[in-house]
Amino acid sequence: MEDEKIVQLYLQRSEEAIACTEQKYGAYIGAVSLNILGNLADMDEAKNDILLAMWNSIPPIVPENLKAFLTTVARRVSLNLLRSKKRLNGFLLDVSFEELDECMPVRASTEDAFDAEELKRTISSFLSTLSDDERRIFLCRYFYGDSIKKLAKDFYFTQSKIKMTLKRVREKLRVTLEKEDLYL
């Protein structure tokens, strides 16, 4: 079925719209979601949320390009699911996160209160100082939990290059945190 017809079904509040979207773009949604979530079980869970989000979004939104709109919805829903999983299960289950211990300022004190907003501002600002590759590699490793092997494949680098890049970024982060007196 053509995209325009599927959108029309959404506008007419026909539940057939969801079936048609799944039939035509089910695999595509899965691929987009898998890219963010990294495992098939979460991908299946995300699929239903994505279709529900489409149902709730159209109308009032009338997408100019259904596939592009679906991509946006799928990515954001998958990201939110990943966030909630990490909140629920604890971020620290990620082995890769131990590497960030290196970023802890050497003079860090246990007495200072954690200022979430300040740290968020600092990290955002820190990310903006990194190159495109550095920023993506950092987030793929420490937010998405990608393995060194996967990063090497995705970025077309050798594994040693990825490790070296991560090491340099961690060092930059440590210097930034120290400079901002965040943990002193």
């Binding site: 966030r83 990490k86 909140r87 971020f91 620290l92 996160f97 131990e98 960030l100 211990d101 970023c103 802890m104 860090a108 954690f114 979430a116 740290l119 968020k120 990290i123 955002s124 990310l127 987030l139 420490y142 937010f143 943990y183």
Partner: peptide, 12 residues
């Protein structure tokens, strides 16, 4: 420290 960073990354 890890926890602080984790929370921050989640909220990006």
């Amino acid at each position: 420290f890890r926890n602080d960073l984790a929370k921050t990354l989640i909220e990006l």
